[in-house]
């Protein structure tokens, strides 16, 4: 019984939160990896693209709610998602037109594009705050829990409860659908294959009749979609605050690099690795340990390796370890 209680505690406080956080990171990292693979630079504006996308989704959610549209047990934000993606895609396409295309035409060194993306990041950051403000916004509605801790206790008779929030379930399900669709697109469709070809060899792709501008546009649209979805899921799961999304950039890049930049599979693995380490390192293991260990060994301290305030240090540490020992990442992306 003690072991079962330990397991439930672990699921409740580590596995489920980390899995949904990992799914959010994976979706973000996929966008970063796509831009890196196809446009050849690290897009520092990705976090703020997520923020902008989420802000748009929130606005559309309010609009839908104002009109009395609800999705029943599901959050209205899911209905607003396509609109948010459309506006975000329009914004990144405009950015590409107005900013990136100039540098592409100049055949600018990729490092210059990285710095350019940093400028775009600051502008997007400002635009998002200007539109929706800097405060924390909660925009989830519908059913809050798939199963609450109380219900679970009553059902199983265990001392520990297991809460499974609907946003966590939605995050995981959405991530699976999106990832499956993305892989199908990249590996099976003509456009997807042309994107991989462009990533492999730009000149040869051009000489094969692939239109580079079209590849670039499709890449931006997909990245905007991934960013908006990831941002919305994160916002539903926790809360929306523009600054938090800017900070998310670090774990997202850590995920992409750990998995191997340019490798979509790596981005997913990296996302979960970073999420599980972050949650694992900042979780107070006392409760689990008390259940598992005999009474004589019961810990006095919290058994927390690191305060949650330092959670970004985990991403940093993973990033450095990977760059030191396996610079190509776990899934052998384009050698970093």
């Amino acid at each position: 019984m003690d072991l079962l209680n330990a397991l439930v505690t672990l699921l409740n406080f580590v596995v489920i939160p980390a899995a949904s956080y990992g799914a959010q990171l994976a979706l973000g990292a996929l966008g970063v990896t796509l831009i890196y693979g196809i446009l050849r630079f690290s897009n520092f504006a990705h976090g703020d693209t997520m923020a902008f996308g989420t802000a748009m989704v929130i606005l559309f959610t309010w609009w839908l709610q104002g009109m009395g549209v609800h999705l029943g047990p599901l959050p209205t934000a899911l209905l607003a998602l396509p609109f948010g993606i459309a506006v975000t895609a329009a914004l990144v396409l405009f950015t590409d037109r107005a900013v990136y295309r100039f540098y592409r035409r100049q055949k600018a060194a990729p490092v210059i594009l990285v710095i350019v993306s940093m400028g775009v990041m600051f502008i997007m950051n400002g635009v998002t705050r200007f539109i929706i403000g800097v405060e924390e916004i909660r925009f989830e509605d519908g059913e809050r829990f798939v199963i609450t801790a109380g219900e679970f206790k009553k059902m199983t008779g265990l001392a520990e409860g297991l809460a499974f929030r609907s946003t966590q379930a939605i995050t995981i399900v959405t991530a699976i659908i999106v990832v499956a669709a993305l892989f199908w697109f990249l590996n099976r469709t003509r456009t997807g294959k042309s994107m991989r070809a462009f990533s492999d060899n730009e000149d040869l792709a051009l000489l094969s009749g692939i239109n580079p501008e079209r590849v670039v546009a499709v890449t931006w649209i997909i990245a905007a979609g991934l960013a908006t979805i990831a941002g919305t899921l994160y916002g539903l799961d926790k809360a929306f605050k523009a600054f938090n999304y800017f900070q998310l950039l670090l774990p997202i890049f850590a995920s992409a690099i750990v998995g191997g930049l340019g490798s979509p599979l790596g981005a997913i693995a990296g996302g979960f690795l970073v999420a599980f380490s972050e949650v694992g390192f900042t979780y107070a293991w006392k409760k689990v340990a008390t259940y598992v260990l005999p009474d004589s060994l019961a810990p006095d301290s919290l058994l927390q390796l690191m305060s949650t305030d330092y959670k970004f240090a985990v991403s940093f540490a993973i990033l450095i370890i990977v760059l030191l020992f396996k610079p190509t990442g776990l899934f052998q992306g384009k050698s970093v």
Binding site: Y36, G37, R40, F41, S42, K107, A109, P110, V111, L113, V114, N201, E202, D203, A205, L206, P212, I257, L261, G262, L323, P327, K334, V336
Partner: peptide, 8 residues
Amino acid sequence: SITKEGGG
């Protein structure tokens, strides 16, 4: 780590 070689 932030840029990819081999542009056209």
